[in-house]
Simulated assay, not measured.
Amino acid sequence: MTKPAAPKRHLPTSPFKAPATPAPKHFAVGDQVTHDIYGLGRVIGVDDGVAALVDFGSAQVRIPSPYAKMTKL
């Protein structure tokens, strides 16, 4: 079993810019979203910063933060 690689840290003396961290996504009840696996849905519940409950028509799915595969429309 191998350990996952640790993220590389930015050295303050580096001539290159520090990698930008993406802004966290925020969803509200009623937002229409699309998910790479489940398709089109509507947010029906939100646990701030933890997860979002989304109704995709055929199923209700709890999507955990950071919502990598979900986009607000």
Rank of each mutant, 00 (worst) to 15 (best):
T34C: 10
F56N: 00
H26M: 14
R62N: 09
V54Y: 00
T71H: 04
V50T: 11
S58I: 15
P12V: 05
P7V: 14
Y38Q: 07
P22F: 05
G39L: 10
A28Q: 10
R9V: 08
A59Q: 07
T2I: 15
D48M: 15
S14Y: 03
T13R: 11
P7Q: 12
I63K: 08
T34I: 14
I63V: 15
G45M: 14
S14L: 12
L53G: 03
P24S: 04
K8R: 12
A5M: 14
D36P: 04
G45C: 11
K25V: 13
F27V: 09
D48P: 14
D48N: 13
P4T: 12
K17L: 11
G45R: 14
A20W: 00
F16P: 02
A52N: 08
H10C: 05
P24G: 06
P19T: 03
P12M: 09
P22I: 09
G39Y: 03
P4M: 13
V29S: 05
A68P: 03
H35F: 07
R62P: 01
K8P: 00
P24T: 02
A28P: 01
I37M: 11
Y67G: 04
A28E: 10
V50S: 12
R9K: 09
T34N: 05
H35A: 10
G30D: 10
V54L: 09
K3H: 04
G45Q: 15
P66G: 09
A6K: 13
M70T: 07
K3A: 07
K17D: 02
Q60S: 07
P66H: 08
P12D: 00
G39T: 04
P4S: 13
L11W: 03
K72D: 05
G41D: 02
Q32Y: 08
G49T: 12
D31A: 13
V29M: 10
A20C: 00
R62H: 06
L40W: 02
A68Q: 10
K8H: 04
V54A: 00
G57D: 06
A52P: 02
S14Q: 05
A51H: 10
V61R: 06
Q32I: 14
P19H: 02
H10E: 02
M1I: 14
P12N: 03
T13M: 12
A51L: 15
T34L: 15
A59F: 00
P7S: 12
D47L: 15
L73Q: 03
V33I: 13
H26F: 09
T21M: 09
A28T: 09
A6H: 05
A51C: 14
F16Y: 02
V61F: 01
P22W: 01
G39V: 08
D31Y: 09
D47V: 15
K8M: 12
R9H: 01
A28C: 11
V46W: 07
R42V: 09
R42C: 04
A59M: 11
P64D: 11
V33M: 11
T71C: 11
P66T: 08
A52E: 07
T2A: 13
A52T: 10
S14I: 10
P7E: 11
L40H: 00
G57H: 02
